[in-house]
Amino acid sequence: MTRRAVVVGAGIAGLAAALQLHRIGWEPVVIERAPARRSSGYVVAFFGRGYDAAERMGILPALCERHVGAARPQ
Rank of each mutant, 00 (worst) to 15 (best):
41 G>T: 05
34 A>D: 13
25 G>D: 08
44 V>S: 04
3 R>T: 08
57 M>R: 07
13 A>C: 11
34 A>H: 10
24 I>N: 05
42 Y>Q: 13
21 L>Y: 03
60 L>R: 13
53 A>M: 11
48 G>N: 01
1 M>P: 12
19 L>H: 08
57 M>T: 03
70 A>M: 13
12 I>S: 15
28 P>K: 02
16 A>V: 02
24 I>G: 02
14 G>E: 00
30 V>E: 03
63 L>R: 00
31 I>A: 11
16 A>I: 00
56 R>P: 06
40 S>E: 11
47 F>G: 00
22 H>F: 08
27 E>I: 00
67 H>Q: 10
2 T>D: 09
45 A>H: 14
64 C>I: 14
3 R>Y: 07
74 Q>V: 11
62 A>K: 07
72 R>M: 14
61 P>D: 15
55 E>C: 08
60 L>A: 12
71 A>E: 10
27 E>Q: 14
47 F>N: 03
57 M>L: 15
13 A>M: 14
29 V>G: 02
72 R>N: 00
34 A>F: 08
46 F>P: 02
34 A>I: 04
8 V>T: 14
72 R>I: 12
6 V>D: 02
45 A>G: 11
11 G>N: 09
2 T>E: 11
57 M>S: 01
54 A>C: 10
23 R>L: 13
60 L>G: 09
46 F>L: 15
64 C>W: 01
61 P>I: 05
22 H>E: 13
13 A>S: 15
68 V>F: 10
8 V>H: 07
28 P>G: 07
10 A>N: 07
15 L>C: 15
70 A>H: 13
42 Y>R: 01
61 P>E: 08
8 V>Y: 04
4 R>E: 13
55 E>T: 06
57 M>N: 03
21 L>S: 10
4 R>W: 03
55 E>L: 09
15 L>A: 02
64 C>D: 01
31 I>C: 10
41 G>S: 09
51 Y>P: 08
44 V>H: 11
38 R>F: 04
50 G>D: 01
70 A>I: 14
17 A>Q: 09
21 L>I: 02
65 E>M: 08
53 A>I: 15
9 G>D: 01
63 L>F: 14
18 A>Q: 08
41 G>L: 01
22 H>A: 15
3 R>E: 13
50 G>I: 05
53 A>S: 04
9 G>H: 04
22 H>T: 12
50 G>V: 09
53 A>F: 05
29 V>A: 12
45 A>R: 07
19 L>P: 01
70 A>R: 11
72 R>Y: 13
47 F>A: 14
48 G>T: 06
43 V>S: 11
52 D>F: 02
33 R>M: 13
62 A>C: 02
73 P>E: 06
44 V>R: 02
32 E>I: 09
52 D>N: 09
54 A>S: 09
70 A>S: 12
5 A>K: 00
68 V>D: 10
54 A>L: 00
73 P>C: 08
8 V>R: 03
18 A>I: 05
64 C>K: 14
37 R>S: 11
70 A>G: 06
73 P>I: 00
55 E>V: 08
21 L>G: 05
28 P>Y: 00
43 V>T: 09
32 E>L: 13
36 A>H: 15
68 V>E: 10
45 A>S: 11
74 Q>H: 11
3 R>F: 04
41 G>N: 09
22 H>Y: 05
71 A>I: 07
17 A>K: 05
35 P>T: 12
33 R>Y: 03
